[in-house]
Design a protein around this nucleic acid. Sequence first.
DNA 1: TTAAACTTTCAAAAATAAATGAAAGATTAT
DNA 2: ATAATCTTTCATTTATTTTTGAAAGTTTAA
Lengths: 168, 168
Amino acid sequence: MELAEAKLKFIEAWGKLGSEWGINRTMAQVHALLLVSPEALTTEEVMAELSISRGNANMTLRDLIDWGLVEKQHKTGERKEYFYAEKDTWIIARRVAEERKKRELDPVIKILGQLTEVKGDKKDSAYKAFHSSVTDISRLANNVNKTLDTMLKAEENWFFGSIFKIFK
Amino acid sequence: MELAEAKLKFIEAWGKLGSEWGINRTMAQVHALLLVSPEALTTEEVMAELSISRGNANMTLRDLIDWGLVEKQHKTGERKEYFYAEKDTWIIARRVAEERKKRELDPVIKILGQLTEVKGDKKDSAYKAFHSSVTDISRLANNVNKTLDTMLKAEENWFFGSIFKIFK
DNA sequence: TTAAACTTTCAAAAATAAATGAAAGATTAT
DNA sequence: ATAATCTTTCATTTATTTTTGAAAGTTTAA
């Protein structure tokens, strides 16, 4: 397999994985393209490499910047904007975790907290089932949350070294 | 807030979270409904509670069974099938992790492994960027994989008690 | 100021995913 | 065997998400 083919495979695989996890396929593909590009690329180049429209490229790049995965660069004497992807896998994982936590986990935890407080007849099996399911899920969600918080605070990349060692 | 309203809120929140994570909204809602139901429900009841069609209810319930989150029950003297959701949050989390690992992570790890092997000119910065990104991501994916494997093997619910204690 | 170079927006179109419901397929009771 | 009851399928419809591309907006240079 040669480099060009391998790049395409990588972009395709990354796009598929993204779409299975609720991330726009194109966004994941643009990210993949930038990840394997040693130099920053222009909008034109992204458009050409992935055969997407200007509007799509622009919006996708903006989203990637919002996620903290890509940054704009300016070359002296040039008016075009260049886009460069953060290459440190650990930072990428953290940014994604951080963003999804904020957008999705936090709101759900809030609702679960409220639902945990709902009062009802303790003899009523419908109430009991509701309350215990919600309480359990709430507890799990809060634990995931705490774990993420600590992980997000960790400065270094402990994952590669340590986390799976705690399981024997 | 009363029980009926709380149930709706829970079903809605669960559905939204599901859809943000690549799980069909209806599937997550049916799961939520069954989770807070002390008794197993029939297809008719699911249809009525969520205002969905027979076909949709049937396929969704079948999917939930495939994921190992719901089981069919038969009541003696009755011909109807009843559906009951596993209530143990820990088991639910494990089943979901297991299924997604199998469907999504495993295939990607395989491809990444292949791409790691791609040979090229070590002086070429395009090759260097490709190789190092792919290698890093591959390593992260393999670590996630190992962690999940161990987690899936763990019999008891260590998550609630131990995992986040390792971070100080 | 004007024009060239580049970026952003957004209504409309296209692509994709999910839901419907009628019909076909099973299963059980009589 | 056949009718009643219940389950499954799948071609069509509907809803949702994503993409397009032309027009409007911005910035810089002369």
